[in-house]
Lab assay of single mutants.
Amino acid sequence: MISLIAALAVDRVIGMENAMPWNLPADLAWFKRNTLNKPVIMGRHTWESIGRPLPGRKNIILSSQPGTDDRVTWVKSVDEAIAACGDVPEIMVIGGGRVYEQFLPKAQKLYLTHIDAEVEGDTHFPDYEPDDWESVFSEFHDADAQNSHSYCFEILERR
């Protein structure tokens, strides 16, 4: 099963200049909980913004210009990325925008964090048809001392 995991502000903004323009430790914990011990696929820009392999996960970098870091697996196509994951129950696609666009048609599940923030962004989550998805989990949280904005975790499964 292919799943996408993303944090989205208003207007589906997911990033600005290779960074997330908010401070939500709870979302980072949600991300870790849902990706640990699963292969993660990301684009080169996302890889560069993280700066290191995510521990406890097979890191697969999709790029037309593969790098030389041998701590991760470099691939040039969506099919190659899927094959590099091996026989696993769930593959997690973690961004960025172009990689989400490439995998959305193949995805069966979306793990979304909806952030109540209007922020400037240069990267967006692809538009998706809500009628194609069923919400199977939703959990709202107010902003607090650690988390700069209110947010809602949601899991959607393709109908």
Rank of each mutant, 00 (worst) to 15 (best):
S148V: 00
E48G: 15
P66T: 06
V10K: 00
E129R: 11
D69I: 06
S148Y: 00
G97W: 00
P66W: 09
S63N: 01
G51C: 04
Y100S: 03
Q102F: 15
I94A: 03
N18G: 04
V88H: 14
E120L: 13
N37P: 03
E48Q: 11
F140G: 14
M42A: 04
G121R: 00
I91C: 15
R44E: 02
E17V: 00
A29I: 01
V93M: 03
S63W: 05
P55L: 09
L54T: 01
F153P: 01
S3L: 00
N147R: 03
I41M: 04
V75G: 05
N37G: 05
N34W: 05
V99Q: 01
P21K: 01
Q65S: 10
P53Q: 11
V13E: 03
P39R: 06
N34C: 08
S77V: 15
V136E: 08
W30L: 15
G97A: 09
R159Y: 12
M92P: 04
E17N: 04
I50A: 03
P130C: 15
A145R: 07
V75N: 05
D131E: 03
M92E: 01
K32G: 03
V75C: 05
S77Q: 13
P25R: 05
G67M: 13
I50C: 11
I41N: 00
G51H: 12
A83R: 08
D132I: 14
N147G: 03
K76W: 09
P53R: 09
K76Q: 08
E154Q: 14
G86R: 12
H114R: 15
G86N: 09
E48M: 10
K58R: 07
G15E: 00
R158T: 08
S3E: 03
V78K: 11
I41T: 11
G51D: 10
H124F: 02
Y151L: 08
D11V: 03
D131R: 03
C85Q: 13
E157H: 05
N23T: 13
A81V: 14
L156C: 02
P53I: 05
E118N: 14
A26G: 02
A84P: 06
R158F: 05
E120S: 06
L110K: 02
R71L: 06
L24W: 02
I5V: 00
N59P: 11
H124M: 08
V13M: 05
